[in-house]
Design a protein around this nucleic acid. Sequence first.
DNA 1: AAAAAGTCGATTGTCGACAATCACCCTCCG
DNA 2: CGGAGGGTGATTGTCGACAATCGACTTTTT
Lengths: 253, 253
Amino acid sequence: MAPVGYRTLAEQVAGSIRRAIAEGRIPPSARLLEFALARELGVSRAPIREALGLLEREGLVVKEPNRGARVVELTEETVREVASLRALLEAFAASLAAKRLTSPEMAEFEDIMARMHDAGRRGDSARVVELDYEFHAAICRASGHRTLFETWSAMSGKIRLYLSTTNLMYRDLNAIVRGHLDIVAALRARHPKRAAQAIQDHLGERLDARAALIAGANLRRQRSDTFRESRRARRLAVARLSATRTPRGATPR
Amino acid sequence: MAPVGYRTLAEQVAGSIRRAIAEGRIPPSARLLEFALARELGVSRAPIREALGLLEREGLVVKEPNRGARVVELTEETVREVASLRALLEAFAASLAAKRLTSPEMAEFEDIMARMHDAGRRGDSARVVELDYEFHAAICRASGHRTLFETWSAMSGKIRLYLSTTNLMYRDLNAIVRGHLDIVAALRARHPKRAAQAIQDHLGERLDARAALIAGANLRRQRSDTFRESRRARRLAVARLSATRTPRGATPR
DNA sequence: AAAAAGTCGATTGTCGACAATCACCCTCCG
DNA sequence: CGGAGGGTGATTGTCGACAATCGACTTTTT
């Protein structure tokens, strides 16, 4: 009995690697060796290759010809760059959304905000950050500008994984929630300019703090063995990947 | 003796397919069958798969699980969306570039403009369009914002191929050249706001005309057989791909 | 006759093996 | 003692074959 939403082995593999990166079991700039991953996950190299391609499309790894794939290294500068672009794109998205927003979409925002409010009260920062991401994605989707949404997603995916691991102070949580309320108010009022401004304020005020946080947390993951990378150390760099798959294609070995 | 800048078979295959799409030998929304492509190009399916992955990253094809790859269909709406995003990103890029532009970079702009002026005088519209693209890419690069440049490239790549095939009127060519001169002037004056404004004017005024042009030209490529796609017609859909490769890996067979 | 179920072919997904390439290390020569 | 050149192992690139899946067609059932 295969798990529900499942499609191909490659996608499951991509999921495993994605999770391993998010949870820090595979540090930034670590090499991702096809054979090692294949052995670890009990599949052949073909789906691994496919999965690395998918992850590259998401911006989580980079591949160099004849030299394999590495986990991207997220520098503070990159985080800042992404943040500045997000502000630009989301402000545009918000002004578009304010013009054409429908009731069900508005309801979605209200729903997200309600859940975010709850999570904020509980001090569940991981959940707040997750809902924050969802909220911003919803705005880009509500813009009705497909290319904008796709571009935004491709760019944000790179840092999404790392977001959930950054812990925030309690008062920061409330600040986030309040900032979103301003945006929702502007959207409800169908006021494009105010919506764009609210988004920019929201992202701008916390840009610096967050950039330092994410990049810092990310740097801290790096271990010396992935820097040096003598031939021996490399073999240790492949972390254990909990693979809860149900192979069906070929004999599970 | 392998060709110079060459790296992997997959990259050559990607190049062949890319060219075939640009030249209209493979129409929009046509299926790209791995086996047919492999036979056509004289390689196995592995590099074909890899190449299709690369092309998907470029936004030229889309893949659906268990259903293979298709050439993306470029609707007028999509072209408009890309144009509006380009305006947004490039205006931002221009304002950044105006602040930090160095002399060698400025010289590059002058050089591109000189060549564009020449091409305009000769009425070589394909060359003008190409240099136009190069100019805008240079602006994004000169912004010093790596993520911005990458995002812009990923988005623009989708329509780049089709640009060269759109023919422009002679007076349009001069309009393009003049528009660029305004931008260069603003950059030379290190005036961020004016540079951003110049870019937006430049892109905005010709947005409608161009969107219709590109999407129209693109639609005209579609042939009925790729729409119907009866089992028989499919086999005809794979166009001849001129493969000037020099296999080295396995026996050239 | 319409809906449901079964069959079949075409196409992608996955596998294991081999070949080519690259980085590293060692030797040799200046 | 330092740099050029060659050898060696690890790792990616490519291949051909098989299995699983999907869509279309055919058959059966109500």
